[in-house]
Design a protein around this nucleic acid. Structure first.
Lengths: 139, 139
DNA sequence: CACGACTAAATTGTGTGCAATTCTTTCTCT
DNA sequence: AGAGAAAGAATTGCACACAATTTAGTCGTG
């Protein structure tokens, strides 16, 4: 039952993030968006969606919550008015340092050696790629 | 990024189930409940929740949908009126044969050898157990 | 018996995921 | 230039997840 294992693992992991991020009122997907933005900025909704494999139906409301929290700002692009660019606010940039401890905290929660986590991650990614290839053939 | 790998793997897997279960109008969590019931019946809401790691907030509406679909029946226990027992209807039992192909179909989607899937599953379970142990210490 | 602690489900409220649709803007082709 | 196709976000609708609360029923102790 690989599928159920992944399902369960995903939910426990989310719980660990929930506890860690609670003081900031952030969810795991919201945190992922911030991580993307800390890495490179600005980003468009489509770019974020490509990286996180989420569509606008998920991202639009999520981004509007991040905007309401004061961490990002949305603006229509001047070159192409269809595109919305997402930028960090000062508060959003400052959050990077405040949340610098999160990856370590999560690693501690996992309670397994780093190299083991990495090899497991790469196996899971291989699995994802394999099943995704099959998905693609069903389009 | 083990966490993101699991997050992505979980969603791709759910998509494979969505496609496979679509003709029956079932979701992956609903299918899991049916699998539990095919294995042993009747079950209480709490028992299902323990096995699937879901609480009544998720299960109550899910079960009422399965009931509306005509696959299960809910009834208060006569010994203890707090407990709700879940039973398969005839239609729900018949579904077992109709959906017998699902595990094989999903395995085919995964496109990886069975032994590899099993070893990956056991690694993921070990991870889940480890992070869950940490969660428990936070209560 | 009564009262408080406890338990089992259901309900409420918030935040994803995702299919499907809509709206706007841009592109393409003639 | 103008019509139609296509692209980028947003919106709508539905089904989880899960925290928190509510409701109903049971149990233990005095």
């Amino acid at each position: 039952m690989l599928c159920f294992s992944l399902y369960a693992a995903h939910r426990v992991t989310t719980q660990a993030y929930r506890r860690t991020l609670k003081p900031w009122g952030l969810t795991y997907p919201q945190y992922l968006v911030l991580v993307e933005l800390w890495e490179r900025e600005p980003r468009t909704v489509t770019e974020l969606g490509d990286d996180l494999v989420l569509d606008s139906g998920t991202l639009s409301p999520l981004l509007s919550r991040l905007e309401a929290l004061g961490f990002v700002a949305r603006a229509r692009s001047s070159e192409d008015a269809r595109v919305v660019t997402i930028r960090l606010t000062d508060r959003g940039s400052a959050l990077r340092a405040e949340l610098a401890h999160v990856p370590g905290e999560i690693a501690r929660c996992m309670g397994i050696p780093l190299d083991m986590a990495q090899s497991l991650a790469s196996e899971v990614r291989a699995y994802t790629a394999s099943i995704q290839a099959d998905s693609a053939s069903h389009v």
